[in-house]
Design a protein around this nucleic acid. Structure first.
Length: 209
DNA sequence: AGTTGAGGTGAGGGAGGTTT
DNA sequence: AAACCTCCCTCACCTCAACT
């Protein structure tokens, strides 16, 4: 098995079709199937839920757009001002997030047509991921101190989030953990996450700040 | 609130050489 | 023979400016 295969690389599924420069110019009028062929390497065909999530939100602007949306930003110009993102990129990212069901595009003004972008349930479900990234960034990449905190609206107290098990409410920190195939896992997935991985996934530890 | 076009950048992948 | 390394090309993604 090559290193690429070991990493889950499937050239038959993931390698984008090669096309000429002249074909690229017709992108704006291209049918959906053609656009799909134009996209970068896709994680869509991967079975792993992490890869499938990255397919939707892995592009960095997408995460920052969701961060702002969670913080109450809804209008195009507000996203543009907050992120300092080029308008064409913002258009593209908003469209992708709408297509993937994380944002809903709503008309709020008829003439001229103006839209706002509001979180769907799927988009709001991304909130814990944002919190986890914030906490991770504060712990590892903020030598100057925390520039952003999670605060309890009622008490005003800065919170220190931890990941807990939904069933028991117990924090995962300190537990021995591993990734294991779920009920819908394919044979390949079962093979990939066989017992040999058991000792390779240490539980997340709290790092002293 | 977008769209279009020009041009820059860097990751990814193929090809071929080198090492083990 | 397999693994590894390096070079080079392609192309997806990006910014910027101009425009509707």
């Amino acid at each position: 098995m090559t290193s690429k295969e070991a990493a889950g690389f499937n050239p038959g599924v993931l390698r984008p079709h090669k096309i000429g420069a002249s074909e690229q110019l017709a992108l704006s009028d291209a049918p959906a199937a053609f656009v799909t062929a134009m996209r970068r390497k896709s994680f869509e065909a991967m079975e792993c839920p992490i890869a499938r999530s990255l397919e939707r939100v892995g592009e960095w602007w997408s995460m920052l757009i969701l961060r702002d949306a969670i913080n109450g930003v809804t209008r195009f110009d507000a996203f543009e001002a907050s992120l300092k993102i080029a308008p064409n990129m913002l258009t593209r990212r908003l469209r992708t997030l709408v297509e993937d069901g994380l944002l809903e595009r709503r008309l709020y003004k008829e003439r001229p047509k103006r839209y706002e972008y509001v979180l769907t349930d799927r988009g709001r479900d991304f909130f814990p991921v944002i919190l986890a990234l914030l906490d991770y960034g504060n712990r590892h990449f903020a030598p100057e101190g925390e520039a952003l905190q999670i605060v309890d609206l009622d008490t005003g107290r800065a919170l220190d989030p931890v990941l807990v098990d939904r069933a028991t409410g117990e924090p995962l920190a300190g537990k021995r953990l591993k990734l294991a195939p779920g009920p819908a896992a394919s044979a390949a997935m079962c093979e990939r996450y066989a017992e040999k991985h058991e000792a390779s996934a240490p539980a997340p530890r709290r790092v002293k700040r």
